[in-house]
Design a protein around this nucleic acid. Structure first.
Lengths: 224, 224
DNA sequence: CTCTTTTATGAACGATGTTCATTTAATAGG
DNA sequence: CCTATTAAATGAACATCGTTCATAAAAGAG
């Protein structure tokens, strides 16, 4: 066995050296979103943060949508990590859904970033594969498991969209919204909502999430 | 009984006569969205469709977000219509969730419009009140009913977001996406997703929606 | 040293949300 | 009839945005 064909000398290719690389751009973009919000993420601002001209970004991302898709992919890292042994499939489903919510919450406007794209990168695929696998292992048919996984993901996405929308409000905006809602909730017109006001204005989003997710898991257990 | 104090002479107020009114602007904006999509909805294009200058719009809507909120409100008309008599609460919950999905599907990008806003207009409030009322009538506590209503709405929103995102693709874009997904689904890396491919690429969104909603309803029935 | 290739630059284009001083058109009052 | 007042629309402008492209720069290959 002589010298193999593997490239042992990673000689730089020809051409001008790169000032930026796509992965770092994605990381920086996520940092900008964390600091200023998704609406403030501009190709120009990202370029400035990378010490690069705007046009350079378009050598690495065909469009801003492509950048957002790469960001969505990056956000889902670790979501498909191995599950703890000795846990029931109900616990595993709950764990996986919670990971997705946590991943979206980790970055400001994370749910908006994710909702606007449709990445099929390895992180997204691994996560979906793991979730479908747990459901199939729970006795569901492939079709039922797939549809259930979609339901879980869609619920989590819809929930986190609203959770982050509420969390993005300033304290004064939040109290103003609560006041406006209170004024609108005439018990004569909306008796049930008036009774629900305390829950509606609650900030216990984890509790809300757990409630909806638990409904799904119980439904799963009953239909197995 | 003589003349009442009700305004029998709706004399026009002083000032230049109006060329436009907010409700018509909302209707026209929804028509533009139907025809060209949300991304093509521009304050300038809406102004042109109303035969008005751009600045005029800002007399009726403080910002584009306010316009979108009014559009979201309008979309939910009829969603809180009376429910049929002699139906179980399970059927009523299913009916209400289906109405929301249908309302969002009625306009192109309807889910995106709704997700980007947070209106507390009468249509939205009536709908939520009706849904919470059905759940309370089913024996849930006020808090549980409220949280369940949120879960149903969030699931429906997340589902319809993806349904419309998929439906917005052209035939060639759709088949390209299917091909790309097929190429990515290496059974060695994603065995469960590879098995799920047929369901994942299915266009039976009504079936997907019914599956997820049914899980929630069964979960509700079991926890009642 | 010259060719080739890759990358970054810098400037520009059209379009967008928003603002505002000005003008127009109607009513109210004398 | 005339003038003040008021509501609304106009028209132009501003700062930014995503995107494109001809050009320049910087490296290896021959």
């Amino acid at each position: 066995m002589g010298t193999t064909s593997t490239s042992l000398s990673p000689r730089r290719p020809r051409g001008r050296p790169r000032k930026m690389a796509a992965p770092e751009a994605v990381t920086t973009a996520l940092r900008l979103v964390d600091e200023e919000g998704l609406d403030a993420l501009t190709m120009r601002r990202l370029a400035a943060a990378l010490d690069v001209q705007v046009g350079t970004l378009y050598r690495h991302f065909a469009t801003k949508q492509a950048l957002l898709a790469a960001m969505a992919e990056e956000m889902l890292a670790d979501c498909a990590d191995p599950l703890s042994d000795g846990t029931t499939w109900q616990e595993q489903v709950t764990e996986l859904a919670g990971r997705l919510r946590t991943a979206l919450l980790r970055h400001r406007d994370g749910a908006r970033v994710y909702a606007g794209t449709h990445s099929i990168g390895p992180n997204t695929l691994s996560y979906a594969d793991t979730l479908v696998g747990v459901l199939r292992g729970a006795g569901q048919s492939t079709e039922a498991a797939t549809r259930t996984a979609l339901a879980i993901i869609h619920f989590t996405l819809g929930h986190t969209l609203e959770e982050q929308a509420a969390g993005a409000l300033t304290d004064s905006d939040l109290s103003a919204a609560v006041t406006t809602l209170h004024a609108a909730l005439d018990p004569r017109h909306y008796p049930n909502l008036a009774a629900a006001e305390a829950t509606l204005t609650s900030t216990d989003f984890a509790g809300h999430f757990a409630h909806g997710l638990n409904l799904l898991v119980i439904g799963l257990t009953a239909t197995r």
